[in-house]
Amino acid sequence: MIAIHFIVNPIAGSGKHRFSKTFLQQYFEVDTYKITIKTSNFKGHAINLTKESILNKAAIIVACGGDGTINEVASTLVGTTIPLGIVPIGSGNGLASNLSIPKNILQAFYTIKNNKKTSIDVGCVNDRYFFSNTGFGFTANVIENYEASLKRTLLSYIKSSLKSFREFDKRAEISITINDDSEVLNPFLIFISNSNELGYHFSLTPKASLKDGLLDVIIVPKIGKLKMLFFGFCVFIKKPNLLKEVKYFQEREIKLTRKRGPIFEAQIDGELAKIEEELLFISVKERSLYVLT
């Protein structure tokens, strides 16, 4: 018997998904799979549920949700031999899309049943993991507005982006030194990516790979509103480097030092994080998570 645990975020995406044992056993045969269903009820809950599943000897642990839920489950599986299954029912689904995991639930089930494992790189921000990307500046502000909205849709994301565009100059002043080298005052954006997709098929780092042992880094200094709009267009056509101010490079490790400003406001896999540490080591752990693809 294969013990397979489903960790479900009931409010992900439309919030209308139902993962009952009766429903799942239509696709995961009772004579082959022993099914356990767990519901994640608050931020961070999926971490504890995954730890329980590891102790209970689950052979496969499936995250049913968006990038936030997937991050919580996957973070707990880093360095183990237990593969992560993904049923992408969130709004953006950036990691699942990068891994070619279908958004169709039944097709995602068959992907899990095929049991084809692959190992991927994992990004680290001090002691926190990310699998798609982390960002500071404009991207973090967008996520803050997005989390405050009532709906998790592409339209909500666009509205949040427009709100961030209008209010971006009102942020607290911050100064960041990158790798002890260049200091950036009030950067428009610092974006560090492990994968080639943000979600909704947008990309700041179209050349990024989950398996190259490198992080793709984009830095955009403080720019005016017209150049912000132009940069948005460049992202839409997946050519962010068209803006001449963009600095793009690949590294195994990035160090950010906050010289001025109250906190690092970041997004980590599409979830807002307010980080009080003044020094951030952002690095990559090569091939340290198994995923079913």
Rank of each mutant, 00 (worst) to 15 (best):
D269T: 13
K211L: 02
K103Y: 14
K274E: 12
S283M: 04
A63P: 09
D121R: 03
T32S: 15
I282A: 01
K21D: 09
K259T: 11
F236Q: 04
N93C: 12
S53R: 04
D67C: 00
V220S: 00
I101P: 08
D67E: 00
T205G: 01
F236T: 14
N104L: 06
S40P: 11
L242P: 05
T76H: 08
N93R: 07
F249D: 06
S164F: 06
G90A: 03
L150R: 14
T50L: 02
K51R: 12
K227S: 13
P83M: 08
K151Q: 08
V62M: 11
S97H: 10
S209G: 01
A140N: 07
L204Q: 00
L77E: 08
E286F: 10
T257F: 10
L210M: 11
E144M: 15
A266K: 02
N41P: 09
E183Y: 10
E173G: 14
I268P: 01
S193C: 09
K113S: 12
Y200I: 00
S175D: 12
S283N: 05
T81P: 06
N186R: 06
R258T: 06
V142N: 00
N9C: 08
F202R: 00
T69Q: 03
K103H: 14
G224D: 15
G90K: 07
I89D: 06
L210F: 07
L292V: 04
Y110S: 14
I112S: 03
S156I: 02
L77Q: 05
N56M: 09
F281L: 07
D180E: 13
K244P: 15
I54S: 11
S164I: 06
S161G: 13
D31L: 07
N56C: 11
G92T: 01
L214H: 13
F28N: 07
E197L: 11
K211V: 08
S119H: 13
A208K: 12
